[in-house]
Amino acid sequence: MFSSIQRIGLPAARQAVRRWYSMPVVTINLRLKADLKLAMRAKEKQRTTVIKGMLSDILYAEKNPQTASTFSRDSDADVATLIQRAIKQRQDSIKQYTDGGRADLAAAEQQEVEILNLYLPEQLSDQDIERRVRETVERLGVSGVKAMGAVMKEVGISPAEAPKSKVAAAAKRILGE
């Protein structure tokens, strides 16, 4: 009787363990690779081009001797920083195209920005960034622009959550009050 209980209970325990261990950790890089295959199969030319470009940027950052020691393709923060940089470049292009009267090229760049935004984690709003910076300033008890470095170190906002430039601007504004 003991062997039948053991035999019945064991597969359920194995399934529970298998489910716990088999929960995949999906990074932005892996999502990009999987979506590249899907976009190629669906013959979505623009999406394929954008994703290939991002994967190329990731590979370049990984191989570049200046960034190779600090960059990891498995780090969502590092990859999100690259995506944010690509979005900023495209937004600058959109501004130049609209100033030059090329609405068609601006629309194409805007579509690329929308594709890239799909891979960024949810971004913090300006109010959330300001609130967290204020909390950090109050916790540290500092004031003045000279304390900017200490606040930036302690604020704890990942580059994947918000661009460092936004966090720095909020810190400068709050410390300058």
Rank of each mutant, 00 (worst) to 15 (best):
11 P>N: 15
159 P>S: 11
64 N>M: 01
8 I>A: 10
49 T>I: 04
34 A>H: 05
172 K>T: 07
143 S>I: 01
3 S>E: 14
173 R>S: 08
8 I>W: 15
50 V>T: 03
36 L>W: 01
65 P>N: 13
29 N>E: 07
39 A>C: 00
65 P>T: 11
68 A>E: 00
89 Q>T: 12
88 K>T: 12
2 F>Y: 14
164 K>M: 13
134 R>K: 14
131 R>L: 13
125 S>T: 15
33 K>D: 02
54 M>Q: 04
171 A>L: 05
110 Q>R: 13
88 K>W: 09
32 L>I: 02
150 A>N: 14
163 P>H: 03
91 Q>S: 09
69 S>A: 12
158 S>P: 06
34 A>N: 13
2 F>R: 09
168 A>F: 08
135 E>H: 09
64 N>R: 02
165 S>V: 05
51 I>V: 02
134 R>H: 15
19 R>I: 06
134 R>I: 15
49 T>L: 06
60 Y>M: 08
148 M>R: 15
154 E>S: 10
161 E>A: 12
9 G>M: 12
102 R>H: 11
92 D>W: 03
55 L>S: 04
58 I>C: 01
86 A>V: 07
129 I>F: 07
137 V>S: 09
158 S>A: 05
26 V>D: 10
3 S>G: 11
161 E>P: 03
4 S>L: 14
170 A>R: 04
175 L>A: 03
24 P>E: 14
137 V>P: 12
107 A>Q: 12
39 A>W: 00
145 V>I: 13
163 P>Y: 01
130 E>L: 15
118 L>Y: 14
174 I>F: 02
61 A>F: 00
27 T>G: 06
73 R>I: 08
102 R>L: 12
11 P>V: 15
94 I>Q: 05
17 V>W: 11
127 Q>K: 14
